[in-house]
Design a protein around this nucleic acid. Structure first.
Lengths: 338, 338
DNA sequence: GTGAAAGCGCTAACAG
DNA sequence: CTGTTAGCGCTTTCAC
């Protein structure tokens, strides 16, 4: 570690000044040819690597981007990460992953990392900005919000249209002939959950199907939440013939619970999810769901952020990417009898 | 960004030298009380944050650890990450996540990040060290290997006993009364796959069950690989009554294929997986599998690494953590007929 | 085109 | 206990 070659060592070997070496290595194009290649060669031979701390200190940049997710255990975010990383690498940036666990303190820490030079920019997939940061008015020229909308901040956001996607999901059930369609929501205060609920309500009312309050079951995006919601729905006097779950994990819970109650999916109960996570296509039955363009969300977020860092004007304040319905085995027309 | 308060600003406000401020803020305990609190207060008031690049440049440390995984899309690694992150944060380190995609070039890049001061240490979950790095003899005092064994390097490794875990899985099937037990392997050249295969072979031979070569189907850890292997096994003249898959994803593939062939799991075919990934307990049927102590692997890897970075001697070259079999719905005694 | 020199913000000797 | 000073390794004026 301590005997790492530094720019000075190269300079000594080649017989030039360290300034010249720096110029040669950063590709400023100001170094003449015989010197240039000698320096490059020496750098390789000595296995030279610039010290990032020194460079960053000098240039006031870190060349890295921070992506903060709510729960790193959720594989869903990883696709976004991959898309973002790809773009970043191409631009010479590296990407760090932060895990907020939904804790405002930790989110604040990540904002601090921005301030203390750890990262040049940040992509938030947390659905919130800590109150403390909000109040103190954070710099808004190096932050992009992705996937999980954050209200009342004027930062570029790369989102999907949750409401219309939810409508699509419900319309699929309606077009199969279902009328008794229930919805298991996400956690209520969250905007994303509200939008998906809105989509459900709108699709129902557009189709002229009266909405039964009992058919709107509160969930929490977890497997267990799906199971419990399903239990209540199935025990209703008039149980639904189809359920639209606000995410895939709950959909799995619903299917499990249906199974436990000896209901066949899809013949007795159709289930639609939302997200198309890993294994949604592998489940038995495979899940009809809304596929989000995670990779693209990651890519767009990163290109937007990089453009901001370059000082370019970013055209749109919020971009909406399109989703698509993936029809698989968990949905079918209702059987005649109620 | 440019008007960020620096240590000098605090010094000016309080009326001391910047050295004193530094001492007060790093908690060296060498600053007297009236000054100390004044400095702290000023730091908070100005929202001071030390510039990491400057600090790291000076101290020759980065206070961050790099965890490199083979595929960030695999949720399995995330638990390890969580465990490691927890320990690291407690020690004041932050954790970066690297994604090698199994590409030696990218792995080399991560080794470079170590050299250029981006990180102080690294935890490898990649199952390999790039040949180039191997040859040039990398510094071995800041690298720990976790979960995926790497051969022929003398670095501390935190592993699980794949062979004995595999034996446990197969013994479970044997104890249920199965004799026609097949194994779908992981990718052959990988040590982990080989060890799981060894465990299978040994359990069989320990039980005095002759091993049929047709029952050893090559897989690749993917869903599709599991499906294909299962197809071949099921079409055998004497199909197995139970299959031990070298990972959960393939186990899901096997169950899907069985389903397609109208075989019921577990009554017609028992299936055991390995890993206990997210949703293994939610699958229909839920999967009997080997649960790896991911969180603990992460924790142990990190504590070991931190101890190495502190210059302490690390006792064991390789640590083996224990796994346990989780019996769920996908296994049952064989039905009598064949 | 190249060298000399300054300085990014911080910490660690060394005095006092 | 506190201030002065030097310097981490690099980039970037400013001269020549």
């Amino acid at each position: 570690m301590s005997n790492r070659p530094k720019i000075k060592d190269i300079a000594a070997t080649v017989g030039v000044s360290s300034a010249t070496v720096s110029r040669a290595l950063t590709g400023s194009g100001l170094v003449a040819e015989p010197t240039l290649s000698k320096i490059r060669e020496a750098a390789i031979r000595l296995r030279y690597r610039p010290n990032v701390n020194a460079r960053n200190l000098r240039t006031q940049k870190s060349m890295s981007i921070l992506i903060v997710v709510r729960d790193i255990g959720n594989p869903f975010y990883l696709e976004v990460f991959k898309g973002a990383e790809h773009m970043a690498r191409a631009a010479g940036y590296s990407v760090l992953m932060g895990n907020s666990e939904g804790d405002p303190d930790r989110e604040t820490e990540y904002f601090d990392m921005l301030r203390d030079g750890h990262a040049d920019g940040m992509i938030l997939l947390t659905g919130q900005v800590p109150q403390q940061i909000r109040e103190s008015g954070f710099s808004d020229d190096n932050v992009v919000v992705a996937l999980e909308m954050i209200e009342e901040v004027r930062i570029p956001q790369i989102l999907i249209d949750n409401k219309s996607a939810a409508k699509t999901a419900v319309n699929h059930l309606i077009s199969l002939g279902h009328k008794n369609i229930a919805h298991v929501t996400g956690p209520i205060p969250e905007k994303m959950s509200a939008l998906r609920l809105d989509g459900y309500l709108q699709a129902m009312s557009d189709a002229g199907i009266p909405i039964c309050q009992d058919y709107i079951a509160p969930g929490d995006f977890t497997l267990r939440g799906g199971e419990e919601a399903a239990r209540k729905l199935i025990e209703l006097p008039t149980p639904p013939s189809a359920i639209f779950a606000a995410n895939d994990e709950m959909a799995f819970g619903i299917i499990r619970e249906a199974h436990r109650k000896k209901l066949n999916v899809p013949s007795d109960l159709s289930v639609v999810g939302f997200d198309d996570i890993f294994l949604s296509g592998a489940f038995l039955p495979s899940l009809t769901t809304i596929c989000q363009p995670c990779l693209e969300v990651g890519q767009r977020s990163m290109t937007t952020l990089l453009r901001m860092l370059d000082g370019l004007e970013v055209s749109n304040e919020t971009t909406t990417l399109s989703t698509n319905l993936v029809v698989r085995e968990s949905t079918a027309p209702p059987t005649k009898q109620i």
